[in-house]
Amino acid sequence: MNVITDHLSEFGHGLVLTVELTLLSLAGALVAGVVVAAMRVSPVRALRAAGMAYVEVLQNIPLLVWLVIAVFGLPEIGVIAGLFTTSVVVIVLYQGAYTAEAIRSGINSVPAGQGEAARALGLTFTQSLRLVILPQALRTVVQPLGNIAIMTLMNTALAAAVGVVELTAAANRVNLAEAKPIWIFVTAGLAYMALSGLFGLVTGVLERKWAILR
């Protein structure tokens, strides 16, 4: 157990960075997801196509490839930002695609009559989406969004590959000094489990609170 207690500060810093990465990514992904989902259901054909292209391009290339492209490729054309910032932006864009699809499924689950009624009342597309459709849609997709949140948490570990010393990278460094992989990586795993368990709990509470009884 000494391997863990001796390196608590390393683990602590890694955990903090993981949580920061996750929360920033989640906030960004939710915004990106809502925007892209709105594009995909909009009456403008070009927007629908752009939304679909975004989702297909982002989802069909692995996150690690995106991270490597952004960290090592973009500086070649003069775009250079810090490793943490780059990682957050990439994870936001990537998870945004998944979030958009989850939200779109929620939008599709809102009965068509709701949209028709909104239009009959004279609401514009944006108004009907913002005031009528999205509030109902988001409530039905709390559980899938919770899954995406957990997936985001797990995916932050990939930032270790591009030099961000989050929990996985921190565990790796401790292991390099101590060579006790079982204790060290099980500890890191338990920390991830605790965080994702927390996410699951919050998701459950929110879902019960916001459930629409039909």
Binding site: F72, I80, A161
Partner: peptide
């Protein structure tokens, strides 16, 4: 700052 492979490290050095 750490990277997985030697070519990545060299690239990172050159990119500042």
């Amino acid at each position: 700052v750490t990277f997985g492979t030697d070519p990545e490290c060299v690239q990172a050095l050159k990119q500042g």
